[in-house]
Design a protein around this nucleic acid. Structure first.
Length: 742
RNA sequence: GCUGCUGUAGCUCAGUGGUAGAGCGCGUCCUUGGUAAGGACGAGGUCGUGGGUUCAAGUCCCACUAGCAGCUCCA
């Protein structure tokens, strides 16, 4: 007999052959019908498999200890993930019926649904969705069971080979090389290599919808074959599905690119260039307010503002290691000599030739030399056909004698030079240099996205130089700053990701073991002490040091990576930074990079979506609009506007010859927080009729002008966030599957 | 960068190989009003760019360019 412990703590005995479904049936038929999967000793498994079998597989606990069993019903997000994975199988089965000979890749779940990658020559388009969905619904109606069976590796290879599933064969032979036994799931005529688990039968898959089709790469590698990825979503009920679709529409409505245009916040002009953001007056106002806010905070916290130029010598970036390592995502260097780009290209060709990745003939060489001469670069000693190393050396020497600048891809080296511009004593540390530094990165065209991914961006950057002893305190203060800043703009739902080095492969990282161990322990300690919830990710650190990233959840449940705090052992080393310690000998400082917003572009883009364009009073580009009822009130309206401006408010007056209701509507659509309606009555008593955008016509308040200004001033001071469109929607990210696990 | 889709008035978009349309916005005039759209008239277009097919191209084909979705990437 099986000893089963149910979630309420009770232990019961069941026959050895019992499955979770059988257990559910002993409790009730309705429960059995609602049961989609089971959790056995904490692992999610098929509800229809004998429990004993899943225990052996799931853990090696002896059979005589009670087995913890939890029935996973259609109320549980875990069941949703299982059902979505089953839906992916149904979709693959439908596609196979409609497109014979299709190759199958992977079909995992995602936060909101599932996808399956297909190797298929015929292009699937959205027009094909209805027939695929129809086929899926047919399969659901047939409600055939999911049957699991195991095979040895050899059997599995032969099996998939017989089905002509080449990608599956390859995956078994490479990705799953360490698995002796592999599981398959049969669903009618459809059989797929799969770890499971699945719902008991196809009929349990309820509300489904295909979402989109897009290209993807086999095993995520851009060098591999391109596949067609079909996205779908699945929910427990049509209502959930409808809610989800509504939610997607909601997200689309708050798209910062749409709102940015509608509200006149920013623009991207083709003439200026892709990925180059133009901050229009209203967007600039939001940014300026945020910058002022940060600047004040930084002064309070002992930072010193600095400025640096937008370009720097290529040599500096060679020292820092950023050039040519990140060459692909940088704008090309600015050369002082016409032949600069030519010689630069030439050196790369020689290097590629030496590495055997490209052919560089003597003929090519002669042509380049001739061109260089025409351009006025001497290079008289260049030995055509000579040793590659000598030639590179000669070209490098020429190059170094010329001016070469890079548009700065980051601010660090500039700040490093500021640190190095003076001799430093331990008494001077920490040095905290802050700058809204604009940097340029040549992101690939397909990666640009509104303000979220741009080519020119301004980081709210700062670099802290401190002694190893000060790391703890400095790290803590930077985290507190990020926390404070996020809270001030009403973002209070976030988690921290702590990225540590890969302890098994330490050679990838610079800096001593001792420093790393100490730093990692410090970060962990500080995060714990501050009570921040964090997930530690080994192997995610930058090569130069451990880091923490703030993952912020917005009001419709999407997660954004914003602020970052990073430790750096590398740059102080490369630039040989020093300070004189109390022992009167030179020491190497530790550097901390930090940016609470990340970049102004990304942060503002995110805020637009978070607030859906309806910024809180302190951030709103236009805080008050004065609305005169008729021409008779124009003079008074003008007075009110200037009084508001004197009090520090961003206010305008609507002098259009429209009716008041049209002006109100216009201001509502522009998401202006307050309207001051003024007519002859108000003018007579030095008052305004305050219309709050959120309360509308119901709670209008007639107030004395001074009183109204005082009320708004207080709201700005508190940086009150009065409205964020709340949503009950949460994605079930935790249900997403690891694609490589099969 | 890859795959697919898209590019028509300031914005959102119709447009069937035969000489360009709507709504909103904008301008002028009328209207002077009390909290989400008052009325009339008017201006506004190299149909993304360059080639090709055709008697004829916004429409069909090719290339480029930009945007969107996804992939890949993000110091």
């Amino acid at each position: 007999m099986l000893q089963i412990q149910l979630p309420d703590g009770s232990v019961k005995e069941y026959p050895e052959t019992f499955s979770a479904i059988d257990v559910a049936k002993t409790i009730g038929e309705r429960l059995a019908n609602a049961t989609l999967a089971a959790e056995v000793n904490g692992t999610v498994v098929d509800a229809m498999r004998p429990i004993a079998e899943t225990v052996v597989q799931a853990s090696s606990l002896p059979l005589n200890t009670p087995i913890a069993l939890k029935l996973i019903t259609n109320k549980d997000p875990k069941a949703l993930a299982v059902m979505r994975h089953s839906a992916a199988h149904l979709m693959a089965r439908a596609v196979m019926r409609l497109y014979p000979g299709v190759g199958l890749a992977f079909g995992p779940t995602t936060g909101h649904g599932f996808y399956y990658d297909f190797d298929l020559d015929t292009k699937i388009s959205e027009d094909d969705f209805p027939r695929i969905e129809e086929e899926m619904k047919k399969i659901i109606a047939e409600a055939e069971p999911f049957e699991r069976f195991n095979a040895t590796r050899e059997e599995a290879v032969k099996f998939c080979g017989d089905l002509n599933q080449k990608l599956k064969v390859e995956h078994i032979q490479t990705g799953l090389a360490d698995h002796d036994s592999l599981s398959f799931y049969r669903q009618g005529e459809f059989v797929d290599l799969c770890r499971g688990p699945h719902v008991p039968d196809a009929g349990r898959v309820t509300a489904i919808k295909l979402i989109s089709v897009a290209g993807s790469y086999w095993k995520g590698d851009a060098n591999n074959k391109q596949l067609q990825r079909l996205y779908g979503t699945a929910w427990f009920s049509q209502k959930d599905l409808d809610d989800y679709i509504k939610q997607v529409d909601e997200a689309r409505k708050r798209d910062h690119r749409v709102l940015g245009k509608q509200l006149g916040l920013f623009a991207i002009s083709n003439e200026v260039g892709p990925g180059l953001c133009l901050w229009l007056p209203k967007g600039a106002s939001i940014r300026a307010t945020l910058e002022e806010f940060i600047k004040k905070e930084l002064l309070k916290r002992g930072y010193t503002p600095v400025y640096s130029p937008h370009i720097g010598r290529v040599e500096m970036y060679e020292t820092s290691g950023h050039f040519p390592y990140y060459r692909e995502s940088q704008f090309s260097p600015i050369f002082g000599h016409d032949a600069g780009a030519l010689v630069d290209f030439w050196i790369r060709k020689l290097r590629d030739h030496a590495a055997g990745t490209a052919v560089f003939s003597i003929d090519d060489e002669q042509k380049l030399l001739e061109s260089a001469r025409v351009m006025g670069a001497g290079l008289a000693d260049y030995p055509i056909g000579g040793a590659v190393e000598t030639k590179i050396e000669l070209l490098r020497t020429w190059e170094k004698s010329q001016e070469r600048y890079l548009l700065k891809p980051m601010n660090c080296p500039h700040h490093v030079q500021m640190y190095a511009s003076q001799q430093r004593s331990y008494r001077d540390l920490p040095v905290r240099l802050a700058e809204f530094g604009t940097v340029y990165r040549h992101e690939k065209t397909g990666e640009l996205n509104g303000m979220l991914r741009v080519r020119g961006l301004t980081q709210d950057d700062a670099h802290l130089f401190c002694t190893p002893d000060q790391v703890e305190e400095e790290f803590k203060s930077t985290l507190e700053l990020v926390k404070f800043v996020l809270q001030s703009v009403g973002l209070d739902d976030y988690r921290v990701q702590l990225s540590l080095r890969d302890s098994k492969n330490k050679s990838k990282y610079v800096g001593s073991d001792e420093n790393w161990d100490r730093a990692e322990a410090t970060l962990r300690k500080v995060l714990t002490e501050m009570g921040l919830s964090f997930t530690a990710c080994e192997g995610e650190a930058a090569f130069y040091g451990p880091k923490t990233d703030f993952m912020v959840r917005d009001c419709i449940g999407r997660e954004w990576q914003l602020g970052t705090v990073q430790l750096d052992f590398n740059l102080p080393e490369r630039f040989k930074l020093e300070y004189i310690g109390s022992d009167n000998t030179p020491h190497r400082p530790v550097m901390i990079h930090r940016a609470p917003f990340g970049s102004m572009e990304r942060f503002c883009g995110m805020l637009i979506e978070h607030f859906a364009g309806a910024f809180p009073l302190w951030l709103a580009p236009e805080q008050v609009r004065v609305l005169p009822i008729s021409e008779k009130a124009f003079d008074y309206a003008q007075q009110i506007e200037s009084r508001l401006r004197v009090a520090g408010f961003r206010a305008t007056t609507d002098y259009a010859s429209n009716r008041i209701s049209a002006k109100v509507r216009e201001a509502q659509l522009q998401l202006i927080p307050y309207m001051f309606v003024v007519g002859e009555k108000e003018a007579a008593e030095d008052a305004v009729d305050v219309r709050d955008r959120l309360l509308g016509d119901n709670e209008r308040q007639k107030m004395k002008v001074d009183e109204a200004i005082a009320k708004l001033t207080q709201e700005v001071l508190e940086r009150k966030v009065r409205q964020v469109a709340k949503s009950s929607f949460r994605s079930f990210d935790e249900g997403a599957e690891d694609e490589n696990a099969y």
